[in-house]
Design a binder for these strands. Sequence first.
DNA 1: TGAAATGTTGGGGCG
DNA 2: ACGCCCCAACATTTC
Length: 446
Amino acid sequence: MPTINYQKKNTEQKEIVNVFWFRRDLRLNDNAGLYHCLRSGLPVIPVFIFDTEILDQLNDRNDRRVEFIHRSLMDIQLKLASLDRSLMILHGSPKSVWRKLIKDFRIKSVYMNHDYEPYAISRDNEIRTLLRKNGIEFHSYKDQVIFEENEIVRENGHPYSVYTPYRKKWEYRLSIKDLTGYPSEQLIDHFHVMKPEKIPDLGRLGFVKSGFIYPEKIIHDEIITDYESKRDFPGIRGTSGLSVHLRFGTISIRYLVKKALELNETWLSELIWREFFMMILWHFPKVINEPFRKKYKNIPWRDDPEGFERWRDGKTGYPIVDAGMRELNQTGLMHNRVRMITAGFLTKHLLIDWRKGERYFAEKLLDFDLAANNGNWQWAAGCGCDAAPYFRIFNPLIQAKKYDADLMYIKKWVPEVETSDYPSPVVEHSYARNRALDVYKSAVIE
DNA sequence: TGAAATGTTGGGGCG
DNA sequence: ACGCCCCAACATTTC
């Protein structure tokens, strides 16, 4: 029998481990990839990488998302520490960090969950190649969505570009097994025993605290049940407020869909919109830079730095628009109806390129998700798949009257609204409306 | 997930 | 009682 001498001296004492890589799935319970990893039979080292490729691009050192991630990691760490386990927090480019991990540990397999954005796909391809070169297995699982890009397609195999038939097929395809949870939390003792590592504070990551309020992770059944009747009123608590938890995976989509089936069909539909836009981005990554519908590509957007600034700072002179922008600036969130109104205002009333608004939301939104943000901005601009026709223009005064009649929302964010300090409208509504109609009409190729 | 413009209807005031 | 006008309310079309 031949002797295989495969152990190098410096790895001789090292235990073989598997690694789980946390990314957009910052939770211990019902986590598909984590579950499979913990069942692998080897001790598991959980890692998170503060990716400098992403962090270095953030303009603001006061970024609520970094703080949200930081807080979520602390929650995980607290739980692990109570069992003498530890999350490993690393900082650097994924490639350099993985090179180091490969050196420091004797890794058999690396587990993670699929991540679908273009950057994540290329990052994961690179890491997969690196691991493979080093003889390490790579396992990735569906976890972030119920159905992936190719699971809900038309009869001819092509992707949908209209929401309603997509939703119908999605609901038709859904079965109990798609919602089965992964009891990863019950396997916590399969993590490698190690001394709990201290999580570096935000300052060491180059960020500052923002006076950030962690959005609650509680599902209030009554809010979901009353969703249709209350969701359009920004002055009351009518939406679930769970978007950020979906964004970072601090809550499981399978659990939320189960709740939706129990409580409210319309709310389920919102969860399906999320997968619809993810599917669109996956199949048509060009939408990041271009309108989904080509015939909208020649709209002569106005160059209007002052208008943009007034929109950005919540000083347009339209109370509902200003309230929304100030809510965004102050909290990192904005009520969904108001997102539609503010996006419509920038694209239609100011005729400013939707990409500028998209970029601003991307910078500010705590729940920022590339697919949803892009899809919804294109919807507002009229150039997206299944978008509102361009001539559906919101009147910000009517919207305010309909959805914030008592000024609860407006007064909260624009306290000076009824005083002389409040600016006059940046542009008169009916003038702006007609201008938008004219410009779109002559620029859209029919 | 719109709003404005235009058309229609019907009740009531009034000659 | 009747026709005419006004106008609110609702419906339809248009952007």
